[in-house]
Design a binder for these strands. Structure first.
Lengths: 245, 245
DNA sequence: CTTCCTAAATAGGTATGACAAATTTCAATT
DNA sequence: AATTGAAATTTGTCATACCTATTTAGGAAG
């Protein structure tokens, strides 16, 4: 038997769990961003002063959690958080929530997020919000769906809170949309355009308040926007119910 | 090199993922029920005709998913589903959110929930809220931790919204607690009692507003309560930081 | 007969080395 | 510059050895 050059673990918790926690922290703290490759197994054995067995088992756990993907011959890569097991995926599996229920939960969160975004946004985050706002306008002018651009704007606002939980909660209902971006059942073209420009105008109030660092105005603008959306959506429901199946 | 008696894996997917899937299926299909011990690692190597490395890595994945717990010298045991992957656990693994971040997200949700509970609660739900409220008082009078009773009260309020997403969001941070129920670092006994009675009084305002079906009062009471909690928690943080490590 | 203690057996944790398979990189050739 | 093939790198699996923790079994004492 060869001489042991590595100290056997002493103290609570196994080496596998310790290395696992260390890797999780490295990833979640941004040391390795999505798509990036982790050090090789051999390098990790040297960094953590453990055997390859421990590294492989720790990586097996991360892999199971959807945090990394491992390609033989290539390496260990950090997965995009969108591919990780998010609460949305579990909850969506368990139950399909109605859009109104989702809105009801989202509204207070997004109102608060707008206020915090106004208080905390960095110049870069401000720019990102403006860019998303412009993208929504571009979709309106080109008569394209504003769905993705709309969601991206809301995500940018959540990001500007600098509390990652807001963004996570938005992704919680990632497959649900804010109703104003749903296709109208049978829209008159001019009416649709007016409708979408109203959305744009409401967005503008939010974005300007965030830019002005006006927390209260941002909250109020988002509240008005979402109340308007809820009202429009309920109207939508009533109208679509009046149409014989 | 010794003669290989096991066939090297051929076909898509690694042996680790295959054994992992097999074990998951055995557990979910009821072959091994909660609390029951799985076969030993050596037995599993024989059953699946793979090396112990493969078994250990497969078990590491199951362990990370919270499906089994492993005790050195004892064996591998199936966990009760209640201990398995819940949204809270996933999020906690990926990142440790600060309590203040959690509070920041929870506050708007709980304020809204209080308002909706006032609007929508059934008599049975009203009773449940009162019962939880009384339980908190009992814990205070018996000098027991109010943590569980406090959480149960918040859950009862979320339930009374009759929108299951509110309860789900509360469970989202199931392991995080509302700060007023945290142990104080070095409490003077009389001060602690006064403190907990203040909590009880704030709860009372919320519960009465819900009973009175007063949405606005419920929201305001919850807002005051949570703002008070946040302020107290920040004070707690400042005080604990002043104590030399 | 019951209880306690100790040794052995069982079972998981870690380290090491070897080889197979997949991917990437590099050098030589066209 | 593009292509091809070999070498290097990296992960997947197997085997062996030893350490640590728990369980079991047997014997001795009360």
């Amino acid at each position: 038997m060869t001489v042991q050059t590595k100290v056997r673990q002493k103290g609570p918790g196994s080496l596998v769990s310790k290395v696992g926690a260390s890797l999780r922290h490295a990833i979640s703290s941004g040391q390795y961003s999505p798509g990036q490759k982790l050090p090789s197994e051999v390098e990790l054995t040297e960094t953590h002063k453990v055997s390859r067995t421990v590294i492989r088992e720790a990586v097996a756990a991360l892999k199971s959690d959807g945090i990394v993907e491992v390609r033989q011959g290539a390496g260990i890569f950090v997965l995009d958080p969108a591919f990780q097991m998010t609460p949305a995926r579990i909850v969506d599996k368990a139950r399909v929530s109605s859009d109104l229920e989702v809105l009801e939960v989202r509204a207070p969160l997004e109102i608060e997020a707008a206020g915090l975004a106004a208080a905390r946004r960095s110049p870069a985050q401000e720019e990102a919000i403006f860019e998303c706002h412009r993208q929504v306008l571009r979709c309106i002018e080109e008569n394209e769906s504003i769905r993705e651009a709309d969601l991206a704007l809301h995500v940018a606002i959540a990001e500007a809170t600098n509390n990652p939980l807001f963004r996570q909660h938005l992704e919680f209902h990632g497959t649900a949309v804010i109703p104003q971006s749903r296709p109208l059942p049978d829209p008159d073209f001019a009416e649709q355009t007016a409708y979408r420009r109203l959305i744009h105008k409401e967005h503008e109030a939010i974005v300007m308040a965030i830019s002005d660092r006006d927390e209260e105005a941002a909250r109020n603008a988002m509240r008005d926007h979402l109340r308007g959306s809820q009202a429009r959506y309920r109207e939508l429901l009533r109208n679509s119910r009046a149409i014989p199946g």
